[in-house]
Nucleic acid binder design. Structure first.
Lengths: 157, 157
DNA sequence: CTAAGTGCAAAAAGTTTGCATTCCG
DNA sequence: CGGAATGCAAACTTTTTGCACTTAG
C-alpha cells in the first residue's frame, strides 16, 4: 500500500518480452529509442507525463524527440501494456497496465499533486455489480479521490 | 437512475441565486452572456463540452465568443457550482456540482460514447474510509466505469 | 464614471503529422 | 534493399490571454 513499489527485474524483462512479441507479430521494429523509452517507462511504472518521461529519456539520449515518445506510448497503449490517464490538469499521463502490476486506483493531493495508489477489493465487486445491472460489458475503470494530503493539511494551517 | 434527469425550474432558479450571491460577494457583474451561458449549462446539467455548449449558446445569441464560455465555466468551477471532467478524449467537459443534483458517477460506453450516471452509497462509504486511512481530507472524486453498453454489444456481434 | 466583461485575434500548450533521412530485419 | 521508425518542424486542437471597446453597477 502507499507509493508505487519498485518492479522486479524479471517483471520488467517480462514486459519487454510482451512488447517484443507484439512488435514481431505486427511486423514492427525494435529500435534503440523504443527500448530506451519503454524501459524507463516500465521502471518508473506510471503517472509520468510525456514531458517528464522525455526528460528522463534525454538524460540518456539527448537526441530523442517528442514525437518518438508520443508514438512509443501510443504503441504501448495499443498493445495494452499502458493506459492513458488524465488527472485534471490538461496533461496526458500513461501508466503501466494491470499486466505489470496489481490493479489499483488513485488518491490525488490537489495541493502538492502527489499521487498515491490504493486497492480495494470490495469496491471492485460493487463496480462489477453496477455494470451488470446496466448490462455493460466492463472493460476498465478509473477511480480517483481528490483531496488534501496530511502534509499539505499541516502546511496550510 | 439512468440518464440525467431534468432539473426542476426552482432548482435552476436556486443555482442562479447561488451564482448571483457569489458574483455580488466578489464584486463581479451579471451580464446577459453569463446569464445565458449559465442558464443553458444549468438546464442541460453537464457532460457538455465547451464546443457543444457554445453551439447551444449561439443558437440564442450568435455573437458570444469562445472566451466568454471558457471564462464563465471557469467562474462556475471557482464558485463550486461546476466540476471539470476529462473522459479520455482530449476534451474538457463540465458538469453541475453536487449542489444542483445528487452525487453520482459515470458508466461510459467506449463504443457509442453514451454516458450513464449511477449512484452507489456503499462505494461512497468505502471511499471515505480509504481517504481516512491515508489521512486525506477528501474534496471530490471521480469514478468512471468504461465498457460496452448492451446496444453496442448487440451491434458488434 | 470606472472597472469588470466581452469579442476578437493572437499566443500558448499539448499533441499529431508530413517528410527526408536513418537503420532494422 | 524496402519499409518502419526517427527527428525535426510545421500543422492542429484546445484553451488562455492581451487589448480596445462595451456596459453593469
Amino acid at each position: 500500500m502507499g507509493e508505487a513499489a519498485q518492479l522486479k527485474e524479471d517483471t520488467i524483462a517480462a514486459l519487454h518480452d510482451t512488447l517484443q512479441a507484439y512488435i514481431t507479430k505486427k511486423g514492427f521494429r525494435s529500435t534503440s529509442q523504443r527500448r530506451l523509452v519503454t524501459d524507463i517507462f516500465f521502471r518508473t511504472g506510471g503517472h509520468m507525463s510525456i514531458e517528464d518521461l522525455l526528460a528522463k529519456v534525454r538524460e540518456q539520449d539527448p537526441r530523442v524527440g517528442y514525437a518518438t515518445v508520443y508514438r512509443t506510448l501510443r504503441l504501448l497503449a495499443e498493445c495494452e501494456l499502458a493506459n492513458v490517464r488524465h488527472f485534471g490538469d490538461g496533461v496526458t499521463r500513461y501508466e503501466l497496465a494491470d499486466e505489470g502490476k496489481h490493479h489499483h486506483d488513485h488518491l490525488i493531493c490537489t495541493s502538492c499533486k502527489r499521487i498515491i495508489e490504493f486497492e480495494d477489493e470490495a469496491i471492485e465487486v460493487l463496480q462489477d455489480r453496477i455494470a451488470d445491472r446496466h448490462g455493460f460489458n466492463l472493460k476498465s475503470h478509473k477511480h480517483e479521490l481528490y483531496g488534501v494530503c496530511p502534509e499539505c493539511q499541516q502546511k496550510q494551517s
